[in-house]
Every structure is written in structure tokens, then in C-alpha cells.
């Protein structure tokens, strides 16, 4: 167990302080805004204590939100190490800015927007397409989705195992994955996603639909493989 970005990197202990701050601009949604899913109140006293630099309050805020922030980072990147670094960066940005939080919107909304922004900036720096039309039109995803029709359907039988879905989401192309996570996992609306990802609402809807179709393909393939193995066994 190493402290990522610090003890894990020899002769580079200033790595943490050199993590570039997210620049304001397109997709910078760190300003508090309302979000329908983020209605959970947080103890104002804990926030006030954190604003005074109370270590325990920082830890309490982390404990309360760590799973959601980390899960978001992990779903979006499909990489544990990257997700941990991004979750760390998201919380650090939160703590750096917490003095400016005045409670006009839900704290969790603020944090999750900030986290999404951190991940998006990371993906952009990696030159990964946040949303790419080409990804869908050139890679034959449409064909993949359409040829499913009329095929021997193994229905998902009313339920999907969480781990299977997790694996399937991880194997989606980055553009699909992002839209699916933002919409179906995190509950953002298409107009919000369009703003975050810098695409049109129509593009967001189209990508989401194709992401779901691709997931269905993956899950069915997985089921078929399992069924084949159990028959062979």
C-alpha cells in the first residue's frame, strides 16, 4: 500500500503539488448548481469545521462521499490506479475550495460536479475522446446494435448481476462509457451532459442508446459463455 503520487514515485515527492489544477473553461462545472439527485443534506457543522481546517471534519466528509466519488472515477476510467489518483485530486480540490462553499446548493452536488470535472479534464489530457461521433459511425457500433435484431435472444431475464454489469461498463468505449455513467449511473440529464461533455443533446441521447445496446450485447455474450461452460461442465 503506497501513497499514490507521493511515496510510490521515487525522487518525485512533489508530484502531488504538481498535479495540474483543473482550468476553468468548457466543461468546468465546479460552481455549485442544483441537481435533482443530490438532495442529501450534509451536516453544516462539519462543513464549517472543515472550513476552519479541522482534520477530523475533512476525514468525515471524505468518509461520507468517498464511495460515490471513487466509483464515479473508476467507472469513467476503468482503471483502479487512475481512479484513486482522480478521487484524491477531487477531494483535494474540494478542500482547497471549501472556504468558498456557502451552502446555496447541496454539498454533494458540488462535490460530484467537481469530481466529474476532474475526470473529464484527465480524459481530455489523455486525449481520449470524451464524446466522439466517429467512434460510433466508424467502428461499426451501429451494425453491432442492429444485427442483434432477430438473433437468437437470450433475454437478460429481469436482472443483471452488478459485477457483470460493472465489467461490461468497463469494456465500453470511453465515449459510450462516459455518457452511460453520467446518465444512467449518476443521474444527469442529457442537457447537463451536453454541457459537461461539450456535445449536443442529440449526440448525448444517441451515444447513450448505443452504449446500452452495446452493454446488452456484452451481457448476453457473457451469459451465453457461462451457459456454454455449464453445459460443457
Amino acid at each position: 500500500m503506497l501513497i499514490p503520487g507521493m511515496l510510490g514515485k521515487r525522487y518525485n515527492i512533489n508530484y502531488l503539488s504538481r498535479i495540474p489544477m483543473v482550468a476553468a473553461g468548457k466543461g468546468d462545472l465546479t460552481e455549485p448548481v442544483d441537481h435533482p439527485k443530490s438532495t442529501e443534506p450534509i451536516d453544516a457543522e462539519v462543513i464549517a469545521r472543515a472550513q476552519r481546517g479541522d482534520a477530523e471534519a475533512f476525514r468525515l466528509l471524505y468518509e461520507k462521499h468517498k464511495r460515490r466519488v471513487y466509483s464515479l472515477c473508476l467507472r469513467m476510467t476503468a482503471n483502479t490506479a487512475e481512479a484513486e489518483d482522480l478521487a484524491q485530486e477531487a477531494f483535494l480540490q474540494l478542500y482547497r475550495k471549501i472556504g468558498t462553499f456557502r451552502g446555496e446548493s447541496a454539498f454533494s452536488t458540488w462535490l460530484h460536479r467537481l469530481s466529474v470535472n476532474v475526470v473529464l479534464m484527465h480524459l481530455r489530457k489523455k486525449s481520449l475522446p470524451v464524446v466522439s461521433l466517429e467512434e460510433t459511425t466508424q467502428s461499426g457500433e451501429d451494425e453491432s446494435a442492429k444485427r442483434d435484431f432477430g438473433a437468437d435472444d437470450v433475454a437478460l431475464a429481469g436482472s443483471v448481476d452488478r459485477l457483470q454489469l460493472q465489467r461490461a461498463v468497463d469494456s465500453l468505449p470511453p465515449g459510450y462509457r462516459m455518457i452511460f455513467v453520467l446518465h444512467d449511473v449518476e443521474g444527469y440529464e442529457h442537457n447537463e451532459i451536453a454541457k459537461i461533455a461539450g456535445c449536443s443533446v442529440g449526440n448525448s441521447k444517441s451515444q447513450l442508446h448505443k452504449a446500452r445496446m452495446k452493454l446488452r450485447d456484452l451481457l448476453k455474450m457473457n451469459r451465453a459463455e457461462k451457459a456454454g461452460k455449464s453445459r460443457a461442465g
Binding site: 499514490p4 471513487y70 484513486e84 478521487a87 477531494f91 478542500y95 449518476e186
Partner: peptide, 22 residues
């Protein structure tokens, strides 16, 4: 099923450790 992924994973202790040090 997608909603179940929202808080599905727990970060390792090293994340908080690093945050605290920073």
C-alpha cells in the same frame, strides 16, 4: 441495474492517506 453502480466501490486506505499528507 445501473443505479447500483453509484457507490459500488471502496477506495483503498492509501487515498485518504495521500489526501491527508497533501
Amino acid at each position: 441495474a445501473a443505479g447500483g453502480l453509484q457507490e459500488a466501490d471502496e477506495p483503498s486506505p492509501r487515498v485518504w492517506n495521500s489526501i491527508e499528507i497533501a
